[in-house]
Design a protein around this nucleic acid. Structure first.
Lengths: 205, 205
DNA sequence: GTAGTACCTGAGTCCTTGCTCGGGTTAGCT
DNA sequence: AGCTAACCCGAGCAAGGACTCAGGTACTAC
């Protein structure tokens, strides 16, 4: 099992030139993850693709894991931002609750779809993915979003155990969205799954 | 991304002695996966732990992946058997439907719990996990179980799109069960989650 | 100008690991 | 007993990959 490693970067770039180099490294790492999977990511190749030398890479990242973690953390922050934005516009919609749920689901699906291959690799191949702070935070934020949505739309799930049901609802929904994007069977279109998912969530509220 | 590889074994053991060796290899591989994760599994170590030589290992497995795939396939067959058994006893219960769903959920959770760490590693670290035939079959069988349960218990989800809703229901349920076992937060007991999950599934039927 | 710091370079070291291969041992059959 | 095929052995090869280090180049401050 993946044991705890320090995933933090080594030192921060000070000048613009160096910041560009680090960005290039992260871009290259992301590209390799997407195109060839985690096993194919070697520090030498990342440096090559980024157009910097291997020595420069180790200026800013103490080891391979911290590089991959930084690339994934950046992506997760982007996803989280988009999901948060789509929640806020969903809550501002006049025709609650169907339209709100619908908008939010589509927002989440769109956010994932843009990074489909990266997320697939991250979730299925990167051993320390769940140790990345941004990923842990993502789960927490998702829970917060769930409560926020219920609160603002004046709807609460009425089960014996509200805390457990909110938790499960969010996780099931998230899993279904992930499934829809990453693992959808050919005979079920994204549209059909989205519509049905919205119906199911409404039924649970 | 993980490309397609031939995951089938090389040749079958003929004599009892050889069958025992192969079993020992699979056991050792499973143990290493559970204890130290996919990255720590090297063919040399598997042979060492199994008490056979590296040469013998390559008699029966053409490469590392086929060994890991065989170990995981064996585990998946066991899980599938248990889940199937618990579904059948659930359907035979007199007090439908709450008791049935409850029994089935608990059966699934128990089946996963026994192999908690192995599944965690398989799902999160093994790049070719979803290419293993037994895993693909597992997903299909789960869908079949879902339809079977609905049919025999005379309950069908009444949504506009029955096919998509069955698909989603099974996947969401499965995801929630997995979540409960592999990633449960400390403040929510397994029992609370199980009970709430049963309620939610019932509400959707 | 010059000192100091940030930044960059890439050949090379060391280690791990997947896998081979030549040769030995055991089981089963006639 | 003798023959064949199944089975087992493990030193070692070849490749690849994480990471170092000794020495350069570009900024910045005074």
């Amino acid at each position: 099992m993946a044991q705890a490693i320090d995933l933090s970067p080594k030192k921060q770039p000070q000048q613009a030139r160096a910041r560009a180099s680090v960005e290039a490294m992260l871009d290259a790492c992301t590209r390799l993850l997407v195109d060839e999977g985690y096993e194919a990511v070697s520090t030498n190749r990342v440096a090559e693709v980024a157009g910097v030398s291997i020595g420069s890479l180790y200026e800013y990242f103490p080891h391979k894991q911290s590089l991959v973690a930084a690339a994934l953390a950046r992506a997760m922050r982007e996803v989280m931002d988009e999901v948060g934005r789509s929640l806020r516009t969903a809550l501002a919609l006049p025709h609650q609750p169907h339209d709100g749920i619908d908008h939010w689901m589509r927002g989440m699906i769109a956010a994932l779809e843009q990074r489909e291959n990266l997320l697939r690799v991250a979730l299925r191949e990167v051993p320390f993915f769940w140790s990345i702070p941004e990923v842990r935070e993502f789960s927490r934020t998702l829970q917060k979003f769930g409560k926020e949505g219920q609160y603002k739309s004046q709807r609460v799930i009425h089960f014996e155990d509200p805390e457990a049901s909110t938790y499960l609802l969010m996780n099931m929904t998230w899993a279904a969205v992930l499934q829809t994007v990453l693992h959808r069977p050919a005979h079920l279109s994204r549209e059909r799954l989205t519509r049905t998912l919205v119906d199911m969530v409404l039924k649970l509220l």
